[in-house]
Design a protein around this nucleic acid. Structure first.
Lengths: 262, 262
DNA sequence: GATCGCCGATAACTCAGGTTATCGTCACCC
DNA sequence: GGGTGACGATAACCTGAGTTATCGGCGATC
């Protein structure tokens, strides 16, 4: 973390070209990165919330434990994502967070966000955008859980992962690593692990999805998207560039669009 | 709208005591309020997004239409709520919005948000808090849809409405107006209208909920909360007061906590 | 290399909730 | 005051997904 690019800066750069000053400000946010093991719980529901966190390496998920012993996975975080933004207004954690993989996370205190609000309109707008995008993912998952069949749910999740991973270059040719167990998938999709297994079997027969261990292959991604009635517009980095022109007075925006590419 | 308190200012004041300067800034956001009729669609999915909107009177909901002709209601907005914040990062609407009731809404352009970011750290933090709270509602609904039985779903929704309305004084003694039809409830809860009816019948037998027309009575709200496994912590205006002390340098915060009461 | 434990596949059975259909009630309107 | 249309109740039937159970494979540990 000391000499390569900060994970936060990398993420923010997806949204907008940053001034050196902004980069410095972001860099300040990062306290010592921490190695974490697969399965490690970063925090539990109802604990005091004092920090945000970014994932630098590995996957994480947020979850809620329910009364009957089951649990619901809310979000899956990939490297570069910010964890905990959702909880800005609350003094307690609304959901637990755990690692799927071994990885590296960077913590930074809640209060620092206010420094950003105070010092950089650009970063504030990017933070709002990031929060907004996370909420879009959540909304899409909600629709998915409420209204679709098990086949569609799984197809949708797999395709969404494919798109997200493809955007960061982690999916090659419809092939990617998916470190979640079937039980974790079930908890994500509101299904039983048994039915996830059944659905994978069906997809294998139909040659829509091949899964072995933690490797997934989509022989025909578009066919899968059709099954899921997938509408990518919530993922398209159709991030509004408005604030760039708005900020013209404050800084030279140059070509923000080109900065979208990693 | 001209001479009584602005709906935006009223809402923001729940979170934090505002300076006169902040109030002036908020007031600027309000363009002409508009009367809207029950059923009127404020905007459709995929339309260009250029404005946010606050509900001044009446109820509204956001929704997604699905491929099979069904639809999913995502959020229910009450007077004082801000609509569209979720879509900050996007240039298109991710969901449609329609009125449940006759009412009054106030539009304000997207770009104005950036003026706020630039001019008031306090308002920026409150906006983040509001967005954060909306996301908490959404998350709770997601868990509800994914993991609970029809009885629990309906119980949860009714109790959540009861709490939200009670917070603004619109529920007296477990009794409140609920202008949603059973079909709208079904679309909210991911159920069929028929099953919503069945569930109401069951609740009537158990004397948990009495519903006639658009009036709902909860004879024993706590019993209903138990059925729903309701955990109020995502609604508790346990809004972090941190930013008040943080902003001490910028403005006199005085007693922000007391300002929570409407 | 035997044991243990996790993960996934598959089968048999059950049930919550969807679907379709019919009927009653109330509000509105000529 | 009779027609119309939205809304809600109820019943009969069907099905997608949960539950429980068994079994096989693989990796870790000693």
């Amino acid at each position: 973390m000391t000499n390569h690019d900060s994970c936060i800066i990398r993420h923010f750069s997806h949204y907008c070209r940053l001034s050196e000053q902004d980069k410095a400000l972001l860099h300040e946010l990062e306290e010592s990165p921490r190695d974490v093991r697969a399965g490690e719980v970063l925090w539990q529901e109802n604990e005091q919330a004092t920090e945000f966190c970014t994932v630098s390496r590995g996957w994480a998920y947020s979850f809620r434990n329910l009364g009957d012993g089951s649990r619901q996975i809310l979000e899956v975080f990939l490297p570069g994502d910010i964890i905990g933004l959702r909880e800005f207004a609350f003094s307690q954690r609304l959901a637990g967070v755990a690692m799927i993989d071994d990885g590296v996370v960077c913590h930074f205190p809640h209060r620092r966000l206010l420094d950003i609000f105070r010092q950089s309109t650009t970063l504030t707008a990017v933070l709002f955008s990031i929060s907004s995008r996370q909420q879009a993912l959540l909304t899409e998952r909600l629709v998915n859980l409420a209204r679709r069949t098990a086949h569609q749910k799984l197809a949708h999740f797999l395709y969404e992962m494919y798109v997200r991973l493809d955007q960061t270059g982690a999916a090659i040719d419809g092939r990617f690593r998916l470190p979640l167990s079937q039980e974790q998938l079930a908890d994500t999709l509101g299904l039983s692990a048994v039915h996830v297994s059944r659905t994978f079997s069906a997809f294998r027969e139909e040659e829509l999805v091949l899964r072995e261990r933690h490797k997934v292959t989509l022989p025909d991604p578009e066919a899968l998207a059709n099954v899921a009635e997938f509408d990518a517009c919530y993922l398209n980095d159709s991030v509004r560039p408005i604030f760039l022109e708005e900020d013209a007075a404050a800084m030279r925006p140059s070509n923000g669009a080109a900065a979208l590419k990693t």
